[in-house]
Simulated scan of single mutants.
Amino acid sequence: KKRLTTQDVILLNSFIFGTRKESDASKSNQKFKSYDKETVQYILKYQKINNLNNVQTAIYFKISRNTLAKWKKNFLS
């Protein structure tokens, strides 16, 4: 690809690093993540297709369930 989206980076990161137990350093870096509109819509679509609740989706994508609720309010309303 000529241009990587945020979604591509997340996918590549999971391929490279796998699903290891998180260290304290990586937990503190969670607050510095940012998502573009395209990736937010992908995450919300993934949640709907797979019939997941906010907690399950948040664990899968390693984001806050409150963030998901905010996205749903802003993007699906």
Results as ranks from 00 to 15, higher is better:
Lys1Asp: 08
Lys1Gln: 07
Lys1Ser: 14
Lys1Asn: 05
Lys2Tyr: 11
Lys2Met: 11
Lys2Ile: 14
Lys2His: 11
Lys2Leu: 14
Lys2Val: 10
Arg3Val: 15
Arg3Tyr: 14
Arg3Met: 13
Arg3Asp: 13
Arg3Gln: 14
Leu4Pro: 00
Leu4Gly: 00
Thr5Lys: 10
Gln7Gly: 06
Gln7Arg: 15
Gln7Lys: 15
Gln7Trp: 15
Val9Met: 12
Val9Gln: 09
Ile10Gln: 04
Leu12Met: 10
Asn13Asp: 10
Phe15Cys: 07
Phe15Arg: 09
Ile16Gln: 09
Ile16Val: 15
Phe17Gly: 10
Gly18Thr: 07
Gly18Ser: 07
Gly18Ile: 01
Thr19Ile: 11
Thr19Glu: 15
Thr19Trp: 07
Arg20Pro: 08
Lys21Tyr: 05
Lys21Pro: 04
Lys21Ala: 13
Glu22Cys: 12
Ser23Glu: 04
Ser23Cys: 12
Ser23Phe: 06
Asp24His: 10
Asp24Cys: 09
Ala25Asn: 12
Ser26Ile: 14
Lys27Asp: 12
Lys27Arg: 15
Lys27Val: 15
Ser28Gln: 13
Ser28Ile: 14
Asn29Met: 13
Asn29Gln: 12
Asn29Glu: 12
Gln30Tyr: 08
Gln30Arg: 14
Gln30Gly: 03
Gln30Val: 07
Lys31Val: 15
Lys31His: 11
Phe32His: 13
Lys33Glu: 14
Ser34Met: 12
Ser34Ala: 13
Tyr35Phe: 15
Tyr35Trp: 14
Asp36Gln: 05
Asp36Ser: 08
Asp36Ala: 06
Lys37Asn: 09
Lys37Gln: 09
Glu38Val: 05
Glu38Ile: 05
Glu38Met: 04
Thr39Lys: 04
Val40Leu: 11
Val40Ala: 04
Val40His: 02
Val40Asn: 04
Val40Asp: 02
Gln41Val: 06
Gln41His: 08
Gln41Ile: 10
Tyr42Leu: 03
Tyr42Glu: 03
Tyr42Gly: 00
Ile43Asn: 03
Leu44Ala: 06
Lys45Met: 08
Lys45Arg: 12
Tyr46Gly: 02
Tyr46Arg: 03
Tyr46Glu: 11
Gln47Thr: 09
Gln47Cys: 00
Lys48Ser: 11
Ile49His: 05
Asn50Cys: 06
Asn50Phe: 10
Asn51Gly: 05
Asn53Asp: 15
Asn54Met: 00
Asn54Ile: 09
Gln56Pro: 00
Gln56Ser: 02
Gln56Asn: 01
Gln56Met: 11
Thr57Cys: 09
Thr57Gly: 02
Thr57Val: 08
Thr57Lys: 03
Ala58Glu: 02
Ala58Cys: 01
Ile59Tyr: 02
Tyr60Ile: 03
Phe61Ala: 02
Phe61Arg: 01
Lys62Cys: 01
Lys62Pro: 00
Ile63Leu: 01
Ile63Ala: 01
Ile63Glu: 01
Ser64Trp: 02
Ser64Ile: 03
Arg65Asn: 04
Arg65Ile: 00
Asn66Leu: 12
Thr67Tyr: 08
Leu68Cys: 04
Leu68Arg: 04
Ala69Met: 12
Lys70Val: 09
Trp71Cys: 02
Trp71Ser: 03
Lys72Ser: 10
Lys72Asn: 15
Lys73Ile: 03
Asn74Gln: 12
Asn74Tyr: 05
Phe75Asn: 11
Phe75Leu: 14
Phe75His: 12
Leu76Asn: 07
Ser77Gly: 04
Ser77Thr: 10
Ser77Pro: 05
